[in-house]
Amino acid sequence: MVEIRRSVKYPESNDSYRIGQRPKVKVSIVDYGVGNLHSIRKALELAGARPVIESNVRNLLDSEVMIFPGVGAFDPAAEKLEPYKEIILDRLNAGTPCLGICIGTHILFEKSEEGSIPGLGFMKGKVEKLHSEKVPHIGWNEVTTDDKYFSGVESPYFYFAHSYKANPEEDIVKGTTEYYETFPSIMRKKNTVAVQFHPEKSGASGAIFLKNFVKFIEEKL
């Protein structure tokens, strides 16, 4: 038997309802109506948060933390947010914590080559098709970063599944990944963290990343 080199250890979710502990932070996951939200919900729960899935975008307007998950295609997601675009934008600019994942990151930008509907425009720049001839970029790839959100992460490999990448026009890139080109894999602006990889699909590394995300929110709220 060869010893297992990387056994997967997830952070234990702590029961914060015990006396003397603060309640878990509520995070609202936007449901665009397509795709799998089980993993992100469960992963945020294990990271110490209290996730709720919101199919009514209106409920986002007074949520403490907004999560734009990485499922589906650009237009359906942008369309879902369209009616509340200005308010969401105001909240992001005012510093409401937010996590964007993959498509959820793309909709934070002004526009995307993938769709025809404008994005939120919170992050300046646009989303472009990857330059590689082999697209989509699917699988585990390295994130090069020294950002605090990766503190404690042992393996630098995260799971990616995308054909488009953000091309920001402001200085918000905190980490990059190489796939025939170097593209941004984590960006941060105000209290919004936007990643290209899927932390909820990235095993132990993703779990630690999300735990850091929840920890930093708790410090801010």
């Binding site: 397509v34 795709g35 589906g72 359906p76 989509p136 599944a161 995308h162 054909s163």
Partner: peptide, 8 residues
């Protein structure tokens, strides 16, 4: 692919 994305 149009509805759910090619990656699915």
């Amino acid at each position: 692919a149009e509805e759910f994305g090619s990656q699915c």
